[in-house]
Design a protein around this nucleic acid. Sequence first.
DNA 1: GCCAACGTTGGC
DNA 2: GCCAACGTTGGC
Length: 137
Amino acid sequence: MAYWLFKSEPEVWSWDQQVKRGEKGEHWNGVRNHLAKKHMMAMKIGDKGFFYHSNEGKEIVGIVEVCKEYYPDHTDESGRFGMVDIKAVEPLKHPVSLATIKNESALKDMVLVNNSRLSVQPVTEQEWKLICRMGGL
DNA sequence: GCCAACGTTGGC
DNA sequence: GCCAACGTTGGC
């Protein structure tokens, strides 16, 4: 099982909206970056991911699960990009902020710290477990 | 609102 | 195929 991180601006698509979608999940459309695409193509059903709020909040707020593997994004006119579906699993008891992550030396190599603009990122198992613990799970 | 980092585009 | 110009993202 692999771990990921999905970034979203809460004004565009927030954790609360994701939770309301329930078991149906929601397609993660709009990615127009080849590295992010590559990560999505590597995802398998059941993979877990963090849900991160960029701009407003700047914190990891919840855990999601991949419920549909990579398929074409119908909103992409060029036809080059695709998407996966994710569903909310559970919220972190305490959101883990970017500032907290930057202060934790064990997380200094996280993609979120070093390439903050990438919208879909891989997370290592060590990073995953540590952040879950920091988030009270 | 500024600006650094990064990706993409297009002229050559 | 290089690289300058431009647009976008996202932290501060």
